[in-house]
């Protein structure tokens, strides 16, 4: 797994590529928590994620908590159905904003 991070239109965009499981969760955590600094808006893009386990969900939850506490925001975008189903059974769809894509997310605050 690798993680690409960039800034687009004032939003920190994080793009993990590959499998987010317990063998890669530490690297994912390091990148995501580094990006989740301050009152930033952060989007994590999921279309290049093959697979996410609870080890990856834990990192998403930690980032969401950190950003919410700092008056920032976490949004999950471009989520394939199989990935969404894992978020749904875990109840994460109720606590973290999910948008179809980056454009629609931008429109929500423009």
């Amino acid at each position: 797994m690798e993680v690409k991070t960039s800034t687009q239109d004032g939003v920190t965009l994080v793009v993990p590529v590959g499998r987010v499981d317990s063998s890669t969760a530490k690297a994912f955590e390091d990148e995501v928590m580094k990006a989740a600094n301050g009152n930033t808006k952060m989007a994590i893009q999921f279309d290049k994620v093959d697979y996410i386990s609870s080890a990856g969900l834990r990192v998403i939850l930690m980032a969401g908590k950190k950003l919410t506490a700092a008056k920032g925001e976490l949004v999950l975008i471009n989520m394939p159905d199989k990935i969404f189903s894992v978020f749904k059974v875990s109840g994460f769809d109720k606590i973290i904003k999910i948008c179809p894509n980056f454009e629609e997310y931008k429109q929500s605050f423009n």
Binding site: L61, K65, T68, A69, G91, K94, I95
Partner: peptide, 9 residues
Amino acid sequence: ISSTCIEDR
């Protein structure tokens, strides 16, 4: 998992 507030989860 019933929480709708991320701080409480």
